[in-house]
Design a protein around this nucleic acid. Structure first.
Length: 892
RNA sequence: GGGCGCUUAGCUCAGUUGGUUAGAGCGUCUGGUUUACACCCAGAAGGUCAUAGGUUCGAUUCCUAUAGCGCCCACCA
């Protein structure tokens, strides 16, 4: 016999182990079943499981279990990401702090990589065991890591292919330099932070120089003006027409000499500042582009003011080696001393911050590798397109669907603004760029060419370059990737998994990585494989605190630790709580009471099962009994009908990825239909074990994707259940003819009696006589007389078609049936009278509205017949009810 | 500056071809030792569906504007 409370801890790990050990999660590439594949978004190999992972794992596990039960060859492929910058900086920090190594890079490239790899190996185990804790039914035999040899091969092959197609090129550009981490980052990794800054306006050119008035320039970064090469004005700006095309020597503090040419460009805003922009090509992307457009007119060459380490370069006299901040302060001092500072106003500034280090980024000119997103060399559907165009095309043509669809707009908008993607990073942890140099010679390939003197590029690839291949690089057979004579196409053809499982069906992840990852996968995969990476993208929202705040690692009080919650309430409860009320694209608040609520739900299922299993034991049931359709009560038919409806609703909701809706339907069915009514109705002596078995069995199957552990445990106690629940096929409705109206009416009668009892303060334990004049429904109620006696605590039930109205009884009307509780002395007659009057008044208001509606010609003419008929019926019923209530009132 | 979303009961949220007197869970209140479950049972109270217009026989649902909150994008130096 099952214990009275479900203790998740006792069962979960054991059940997971059995699933895994018996290969329940394993997909078969040779099966005839249609594939259903989800590539698990790989958590960072260094990470610890947080709620973001939990919600992803819960949603994906529900999807995959549902499809597995529906007869698909379901593959959920797990793995981890080497998370280049994130991992390297964590390890460097650890080395500094715990081992006292001041400059971990001094260990040398090989040694440092080794240390990082060791660290990763350790933390991978953590994340793996935590994924298991969530009950994720992923195929561990296919686990991949973005640094696996086979994935490395794919990375190199794609790089080479893109290089040969001219889509990857090397160029000097102004890029985003993360001073703290000493590497470039991509445009998408730059965040903007609003900060109170100062706008300095100062005299740039004297009146003598302009031959007119002094020329003022406004800037928030005065120090960069030490390296200006031009002054830009709007072509229509009347104030500066006479200066356009001229150039001036400017002598700054410390003896720094520059030459600036005045250029005209439409991008300059006449209204802002003085309408003049100092152009520093090497420290601003905008300025760089300005310079590119006007290169020919500008006399001076660009000057690099700031160095990689964030200090002033040797090109700036008087400030060499200073920090940017010091340089700014001193230069401002100098301007003031020279009486050239006109104003200093505070104004809100958009500070560029690195997503990785959270430190300011410095735009710097650097020689880097880029992916060209505009070059039309990609063949797609027989047309030559650019990478951008393919990315747009697959979503526009609905080859890929994004849920919710509003994110498609966001996606298109992002592509419209997309510029060439900087893919090289100056860190050591990652896929090293497969390019070799020997003097002026450049070679792109897996290994260095024959001969001496070849040196590999020092840089590594952006981590998203490799994760962009995730849906398919994980399906390439590692056994064949060692063979370097094979082409990329050979690798596709030779990999059974790729052939069976790609394109994948579902990519589920948080909307915050739509650009970083989803878009990159579409870009990389359409190009490399000629296939889309996935058919559907499901974007879940962020988990927030009860107050709606972001949970942040730096403020542990705001965080809920999923492992804590699992420990306290069980995995199933956590899963339910994260999935119900969670709709795609919308953030969701999670708090402990909610999780507790779903713990109660798992316990409810446990106890309902305990009850049913107890009946089976008592009656010696050892096999699934067959339902005798000739011998069903109203309640049996009702619950079968309800179950059928539930199966359909849950299945179609899950098929449409409406996870929350499916969960709610099942919650409601178990608690409100099965437990509150069917089990209560089964407490007499007319238990139908076959129906109980049928319904419980189906409940377990239906709930299994949501709460896999408790359902699997109960399943193991179900007499005659074969194998594990995880393998059970999804139910289909059976005996669909049953309608359940009699029981619906019975429920309303019982509820009404309970209501009258409560309203009239009749002690719950006391059994009372009840009179029902049920008119046409008399026979129907008679069949279930005993249930009314028991469920409504009735001592004596007078049930007949009609009769005399008793004096001073509590009374009401349900479905045209008249109810009376005639006990003198029990009922407070004044109160009951008042209650009746109130109800009549309420009904009359309702009637008035209905009559007005039906009296409205336009309504009758325009509304569909079914609606009009419905309203008429309502009117009839309400009128009849009012009439009866009035008669009852007359008894007082 | 551009774009997107949200606003429904005290709290957290559901609610799609526009048509029941708008729903759930938690909380609150009144009761409860009923042959599973107090992690429970029975009953109740609680909403002008942000505001103002419009379309319609009919609007929580569609349109427009406004307000508040939030998010994303962007070369006002």
């Amino acid at each position: 016999m099952l214990p009275p409370a479900y203790e998740a801890k006792k069962y979960e790990d054991k059940i997971y182990k059995t699933w895994e050990d018996t290969g329940a999660f394993k997909a078969d590439a040779n099966s005839d079943k249609p594939p259903f594949t989800i590539s698990m978004p790989p958590p960072n190999a260094t990470g610890v499981l947080h709620l973001g992972h939990s919600v992803m794992l819960a949603l994906e596990d529900i999807m995959i279990r549902h499809r597995r039960m529906k007869g698909y060859e379901a593959l959920w492929l797990p793995g981890t990401d080497h998370a280049a910058i994130a991992t390297e900086s964590v390890v460097i920090k650890n080395l500094k702090e715990t081992e006292g190594i001041k400059n971990p890079r001094s260990l040398g490239r090989e040694k440092l990589i080794e240390r990082i790899a060791q660290y990763v190996e350790k933390s991978q185990d953590t994340i793996r065991s935590q994924i298991r804790k969530m009950g994720a039914s992923c195929d561990w035999s296919r686990e991949r890591y973005t640094m696996d040899q086979s994935l490395h091969r794919c990375v190199n092959e794609v790089f080479k292919k893109m290089y040969e197609d001219g889509l990857i090129y090397r160029a000097e550009r102004v890029v985003n330099w993360d001073v703290a981490l000493q590497t470039t980052i991509s445009d998408d990794e730059v965040e903007y932070e609003e900060k109170e800054g100062t706008l300095y306006t100062f005299e740039y050119l004297s009146a003598k120089q302009t031959g007119d008035k002094p020329l003022y320039v406004a800037t928030s970064r005065p120090e960069t003006k030490l390296g200006d090469t031009a002054l830009a004005v709007h072509p229509d700006d009347k104030r500066y027409q006479h200066l356009i095309g001229k150039d001036f020597d400017v002598k700054w503090a410390g003896g720094q000499m520059i030459n600036v040419t005045v250029i005209a460009d439409h991008t300059v805003d006449m209204e802002f500042g003085t309408g003049v922009v100092g152009v520093t090509p090497f420290h601003s992307k905008t300025d760089y582009e300005l310079w590119q457009r006007h290169k020919a007119e500008i006399k001076a060459d660009p000057i690099q003011v700031i160095d990689e380490d964030g200090t002033i370069t040797g090109h700036i006299k008087g400030y060499v080696g200073m920090t940017v901040q010091d340089c700014r302060e001193q230069f401002v001092e100098w301007l003031k001393k020279e009486k050239r500072m006109k104003s200093e106003e505070s104004y809100p500034q958009q500070l560029s911050i690195s997503y990785r280090s959270k430190q300011p980024i410095e735009p710097l000119p650097k020689l880097q590798w880029f992916i060209d997103v505009n070059k039309k060399t990609v063949s797609w559907n027989g047309q030559l397109m650019s990478l951008k165009e393919v990315m747009q095309e697959v979503v526009r043509a609905k080859k890929i669907t994004i849920i919710p669809d509003r994110f498609e707009k966001t996606y298109f908008h992002w592509i419209d603004n997309l510029q060439d993607w900087c893919i090289s990073r100056q860190i050591w942890w990652g896929h090293r760029i497969p390019v070799w140099y020997n003097g002026d010679e450049v070679f792109v390939g897996l290994d260095a060419p024959e001969g001496d003197g070849w040196k590999q590029d020092e840089d590594t690839l952006d981590t998203w370059f490799s994760s962009g291949l995730w849906t398919w690089s994980t399906l390439i057979d590692p056994a064949i990737t060692e063979d370097n004579t094979l082409s990329l196409d050979d690798l596709f053809e030779g990999s059974a998994d790729f052939q069976k499982f790609h394109p994948t069906q579902m990519l589920e992840t948080g909307y915050d990585i739509l650009f970083f990852w989803i878009a990159r996968m579409i870009l990389m995969t359409t190009y490399a494989t000629g296939q889309i990476p996935f058919e559907t993208v499901y974007l879940h929202g962020l988990i927030r605190t009860r107050e709606g705040k972001k949970m942040s690692k730096s403020d542990p009080a705001t965080c809920i630790d999923p492992l804590d919650m699992i420990d306290k309430y069980g995995t199933d409860a956590l899963r339910m709580s994260m999935v119900i009320g969670n709709t795609p694209g919308n953030d969701m608040r999670l708090y402990e009471e909610k999780i507790k609520g779903y713990r109660n739900f798992t316990n409810k299922l446990w106890n309902a099962s305990r009850f049913v299993l107890g009946i089976f034991e008592e009656k010696g049931i050892s096999e699934e009994p067959a339902i005798d359709t000739e011998n069903l009560t109203d309640a049996d038919e009702w619950i079968i009908g309800k179950l059928n409806k539930t199966i359909k609703a849950a299945d179609s909701a899950l098929t449409d990825y409406k996870i929350s809706e499916a969960g709610q339907v099942l919650y409601d069915f178990l608690w409100n239909d099965f437990c509150d009514w069917y089990l209560e109705l089964s407490k007499g002596d007319k238990q139908n074990t076959a129906v109980l078995y049928h319904v419980l069995k189906n409940i377990l199957i239906l709930l299994h994707p949501f709460i896999p552990f408790v359902t699997e445990e109960i399943w193991s106690h179900l007499p005659g259940a074969k194998g594990m629940l995880i393998h059970e096929p999804y139910p289909v409705p059976q005996n669909e003819k049953y309608n359940h109206v009699p029981i619906t009416r019975l429920i309303d009668v019982v509820t009404k009696i309970r209501y009258l009892r409560a309203e009239n303060k009749i002690e719950p334990a006391r059994k009372i006589p009840v009179i029902i004049y049920a008119h046409a429904k008399t026979n129907e109620l008679k069949r279930n007389e005993e249930d009314i006696l028991r469920l409504a605590r009735v001592s004596e039930l007078t049930l007949q078609e009609t009769g005399e109205k008793p004096d001073k009884a509590a009374a009401d009307v349900v479905h045209g049936m008249e109810l009376f509780i005639p006990l003198e002395g029990l009922v407070d007659t004044d109160k009951e009278k008042e209650r009746l009057e109130k109800e009549i008044k309420n009904l009359e208001g309702y009637l008035k509205g209905l009559k007005a509606k039906l009296g409205n010609k336009k309504f009758v003419e325009n509304a569909p017949d079914a609606v009009v008929e419905g309203e008429k019926k309502k009117l009839e019923e309400a009128e009849e009810k009012v009439e009866k209530l009035k008669e009852q009132l007359a008894q007082f």
